[in-house]
Amino acid sequence: MNAKAENPLDVPYQGLSAEHYRDQKLWPVVQREYSGGLVVIIDEIDKHGEVNEVLYTLSRTQSKDDVDFPVVTIGISNDIEFKGEIESRVQSTLQPEHRTFTPYEEDQLIAILENRRDAFYDGVLDDEVIPTTAELAAEEHGDARRAVRLFRNAGEIADEEGDDIVTANHVLEADELVEVELFMEMVKGTPLSGKLLLFALTRLDRNNPEKEWFRTSEIHEVYQTVARDVEVEPKGYNRALELLNKHVTTGVLESKKKEGGDQGKFRSYSLQGDVESTRTGLINSTPELQTLMGW
C-alpha cells in the first residue's frame, strides 16, 4: 500500500518504482549537495549480477531522467576480458573508455612498503625485510595489498616468537600464512556445502597430481563422500553446479566448457590458488572438516 506523503519531498521508502525513487529522492539530493556532478565507482564490477542494467540506467541519466549535472561511472575489474560482457545497447549509450593499470613492479612495492616502515619501532627491521616482501608480492601479480599484509604478518610472527628483529625468514613464514588468510576471506560466508565441494576438489587434486581440471561429475561424486563423512546430507548435482559456479564468480575456481565426443559438452573446474593453502584455509574455517581431520 502506498501512503500519500504530506510533503512531496518526503517520499516513502517502499512501494515506489526505481524511476520514481531516483526522480523524487536521489537526484534532488545530488543536485542540492553535489551540484558539480556525481561520480559512481563500482569496485569488482565484473562480479555484479545486474551490471548491464546498472550501467544502462546510469548512462541515460541526463537524457532520460532529465538531470542537468554530469554522472560519471567508473568500473574497476581485474578481468581484462570483462568489457566483452557489456551489452551492445549499453556500449552505445555509455561510450566507455578503457584504462589498463599494470601490476606494481618490485621497486614500486618497495616504495609503498617504505612508506609503512613507521608501523614498526626504529631499528627492528632487518635490511632484507622490505626487499624480500616486495619480491614475493611482485611474483604474485604485483599485489600491493598482499605486500602490506605480508609486511604486517612478518612483524606479528617475529613478535609471537619473541624475536627483537624482523628478518627475511619471518617474511617467508608469513608468505605461507597469507595464502591461507586470503583464501579464508574469499570463502567467508560460503555455505557449508560450498566449502565441502571445494574440499572435494582439493582431494581430487592431491590424488591426481597429473591433472589440473576436473569435471563437475567427478567433483560431485567425491563431495557426496565428504558430506556423508561429516554427517551432512549432500546437495544434488544441479545445486552443486550452482555452488561451483559461484566460486568461479569469486575467483576461487576457474571453469571451462569442453566437448566430450559421445558424452557431449561438460564443464570442468580448476583451483586458482595453491592446493595446500586452499585445503588448510577450508579446514581452519570449517568446524566439520576440523572434526573430520582430527584437528
Rank of each mutant, 00 (worst) to 15 (best):
A134H: 01
E106K: 14
G142M: 09
R99G: 06
N153V: 14
E139F: 04
F151P: 00
R145Y: 06
L113R: 04
H98L: 13
D127S: 09
R117S: 11
A134M: 03
L150A: 02
P96I: 01
N153H: 14
R89F: 05
H141P: 03
D118P: 10
R117W: 04
R145N: 05
E87M: 04
V148E: 02
L109Q: 13
T132R: 11
L113N: 07
H98K: 10
V124H: 03
V90S: 00
F120E: 01
E105N: 13
R89H: 05
D122K: 14
A147T: 01
E135V: 05
D107F: 15
A119N: 09
I130P: 03
E97C: 07
P96G: 01
L125T: 00
D107E: 15
T102Q: 13
D107S: 15
R146F: 05
P103K: 11
L150S: 02
E114A: 12
T93I: 05
T102K: 13
E140H: 12
F151T: 00
Q95T: 07
V124R: 05
A119I: 09
E135R: 14
G142L: 09
A147E: 01
L136K: 09
I112M: 02
Y104C: 11
S88W: 07
T102D: 13
L109W: 07
T132Y: 04
A138M: 01
E128A: 07
R99A: 10
E114H: 11
E87P: 03
E105A: 09
T133S: 00
E140R: 14
N115G: 13
A144H: 05
A111L: 11
D143T: 04
E105G: 11
V148M: 07
A111E: 11
A134R: 00
I110H: 14
L136N: 01
D122G: 13
E139D: 08
L94A: 07
T100D: 06
A144P: 15
A111M: 11
E105C: 06
I112G: 02
V129F: 07
V124G: 02
L136Q: 08
L94R: 03
A144V: 03
P96V: 05
N115P: 06
R99Y: 12
F101I: 10
L113G: 10
D107H: 15
E106N: 10
D127I: 07
R152S: 14
Y104V: 06
R146Q: 09
D143A: 05
V148N: 02
Q91K: 10
P131D: 10
L150R: 02
L109E: 08
Q95V: 04
V148L: 07
P131G: 12
A138L: 01
G123R: 08
I112T: 05
F151H: 00
Q108E: 15
Q91H: 06
D122W: 09
I110C: 12
T93C: 03
F101M: 08
E87Q: 05
R145F: 01
H141N: 15
Q108K: 12
A119W: 14
A137K: 02
D143H: 04
L150D: 00
R99V: 14
Y121P: 10
A111D: 12
I112E: 02
D126S: 12
D118N: 15
N153K: 15
R116I: 06
F151D: 00
L109I: 13
L150T: 04
R152H: 13
T132D: 03
